[in-house]
Design a protein around this nucleic acid. Structure first.
Lengths: 405, 405
DNA sequence: TTAGATAGTCCAATAGACGAACAAAATGGC
DNA sequence: GCCATTTTGTTCGTCTATTGGACTATCTAA
């Protein structure tokens, strides 16, 4: 709803189409009568609008679902699970994961491609993504789902919009990569028509996942995630902070040790060298279990923690303390009501939460008392799923664009 | 533009009225033809809309202002400086300042009331505000300006909306004060009709002032202000972070010293005890010049700094270092492109900027390089002016509400 | 079988934006 | 001084989408 564009009857109509879609998405199967009541539009208008949406494949009529009661039974409408779908990808240094979701948000298929090392060369990532995309596109076409968009979540900064977006990632060793364009070209090759590709920071997606799941209740929140290095996503009024260079939430390279270890980024004492995945594993004495072999599993740490392994517990405490100090530093900017520890950290449980909370209170005593710190309960494929969800939410928010095409 | 309400022709109309007002505000004197071109609406529609806005006293027709050229001369339209106006107040521990601005943003009058100590009891503040309000209301009525709203900027947390908003302020010693209601009642007594009163955090207003003045260019920014204690306002995409308790930006009580001085808040080692106004004055050896006597003046520090006074320079450096450490902590959350030092800090100039920059780089080396740190060039009454501006901007953004009343 | 209730559709009325034609007021060439 | 040209602004009929009410459809309960 661009505020700077004129409003004619067409805009009016678009707005109301979106309103109906949002309600249908939020409240599940609803009769036209209920949609009319909830939207404030009249029954006649709802008839008109839902007609268009059904025609365009966005809504679907399921039979009457009512148990009993007086009056003509309702003809329930739902988001059309056979309509437009979306593919979400998660690109990390050692794998590409993907999923296909339909308009309702249900996961219809998943795919994973491990790889030794995707760093430095974006072409490798595109190559690894190819079989994943092929499979998901196949699944989609088998159920006549049209893929409306592909969204990628990755550890790094995303600047610019849409096709012209560029990705820079210390973790992947990419600089100003036109990932959307590269993937878009590959999609063409797979017969995917010209599907729009968008890129997002993975940790911001994690934060959005918490918000959209309803678990956050709309409070400002900080989500800490990341597979190898640490990163955060910050939400204010449901909107992720992007920052001047798209670097908002990049906490991995804050200096936490005056004379610390050398980090992959070239500097010393970075948070990643203390609380990064590899750092924790090393400190726990399980250095041989290289972090890069962990795809799809939680690694040895949860087991060790549960068994009371002292080295493991100490390593997690140490990481939590450092992380808590950094989070304590950004708390006064954001005043979050909730801090969620996700990604690889989620499996570390209460030892980590306790250490983070303590360090938080130490630094920002005035604000920390009201903050809930907890681990994420999202499934491991949050990033890919939420990436895909950005596409479907966009579609639900602007159905007119889809109907026009 | 509530997204959850239905859109009929009336909403359409309201949207377009706002569009015209925004354009008129942004581009200065404009002909109807130019408004049509800029808005994308047709000339006929503009005639209709401007007619209503003129009728309602929001726009005014000034004669043709053109020097020469072929064609019928334009009849220029401007925001009506004799239409609705707004009062902005700044409430601090030792004074209440206020100003009256018209729709165009021009300051029509100012007023100031010093007081020994307004703390602990909000009633004192209301009492001190009374003569200020009386004067400004008088000025308004003398030019037939109707006061559309009163907005207050103060150091503290504001929760809730409008009339039911409550203010809590460590600095003022207030807890859950219904300031809007108190002031509203007082306004009734002054014959001000029932003018809506809103309250805002002063530092967020400072940040908005930088944004609205255009000096920030839309980048995420952190504004540091405050008269006695320090506070910050953080902007992301032009929107101030409010936080879970309205406490976003409250940096004054972050702990920066493991064993530091006792702070007024009861804890020890707070940033305020190192970089607060009184702390700097004391450290500079000018403790006798109590900070509370500084209303309206910059105090002795700028002079001492200019004269090369070593104690003063050292005090400012020390404060800047502590402030920079705290700002360095919140940088990774926000990734600001700009940090503005305002309020009492603005007068401390380059000594402060240098120390802050250095400390910033120390803590967040990866992000600090792209950040511009500078002092604010806003006039000393920014807070009151920007408070008032929130009212006029609201009016410009929703003219229909005004026309209806 | 009928009254009552709820769901959904049809159609004339209405509000506001649009577009084209037209009126108004200047400049400039002759 | 007169007329073509240019730009501004208004008038009026057309168009689109929502509205509100009348009407139809389909169920339960008595």
């Amino acid at each position: 709803m661009e505020a700077d564009s004129p409003a004619g009857p067409v805009r009016q109509h678009e707005h109301n189409l979106a309103l109906v879609m949002r309600l249908a998405a939020a409240t599940g199967p609803s009769s036209r009568a209920r949609l009319a009541e909830a939207s404030g539009l009249t029954k006649s208008t709802i008839t008109q609008l839902t007609g268009e949406l059904i025609e365009g494949g966005l809504l679907r009529e399921i039979g009457t679902g009512r148990v009993s009661g007086p009056g003509r039974p309702a003809n329930l409408l739902v988001l059309n699970s056979l309509g437009p779908a979306a593919i979400g990808l998660q690109v990390e240094a050692d794998h590409v994961a993907g999923c296909l979701i339909d308009l309702t948000g249900r996961v219809r298929d998943r795919a994973l491609r491990k790889a030794d090392d995707l760093r430095a060369d974006p072409a490798k990532a595109v190559k690894a993504a190819e079989p994943v995309l092929r499979r998901l596109l196949n699944t989609a076409s088998s159920t006549d789902n049209v893929v409306a968009g592909v969204a990628v979540g990755l550890p790094g900064r995303v600047s610019g919009q849409q096709d012209s977006a560029t990705v820079s990632s210390a973790e992947l060793g990419w600089q100003e990569t036109g990932l959307s364009r590269l993937l878009g070209a590959r999609l063409d090759g797979l017969g995917g028509g010209s599907i729009p590709v968008t890129a997002h920071n993975g940790n911001r997606l994690g934060a959005l996942a918490e918000e959209w799941s309803g678990g956050a209740g709309g409070v400002p929140l900080v989500y800490v995630g990341g597979e190898f290095g640490l990163g955060a996503g910050v939400l204010n009024e449901g909107v992720p902070l992007r920052g001047n260079n798209g670097a908002a939430g990049e906490i991995g390279h804050v200096r936490v040790r005056a004379r610390g270890e050398r980090c992959a980024c070239g500097r010393t004492g970075c948070l990643d060298t203390v609380a990064g995945q590899q750092a924790i594993l090393t400190a726990a004495g399980t250095g041989s279990a290289a972090a890069s072999r962990l795809v799809g599993g939680a690694g040895p740490l949860p087991g060790l923690l549960a068994a009371g392994d002292r080295a493991a517990i100490a390593a997690v405490r140490r990481a939590g303390k450092a992380l808590g100090e950094v989070l304590g530093g950004l708390v006064p900017a954001v005043d979050p009501g909730l801090i969620v520890l996700g990604g690889r950290l989620a499996a570390l449980g209460e030892s980590l939460v306790g250490a983070v909370s303590a360090a938080l209170t130490e630094r920002s005593p005035a604000l920390a008392t009201d903050i809930v710190v907890r681990v994420s309960t999202m499934p491991p494929d949050v990033v890919a799923r939420t990436a895909a969800a950005t596409v479907t939410r966009e579609l639900i928010g602007s159905p007119a664009r889809w109907l026009a095409a």
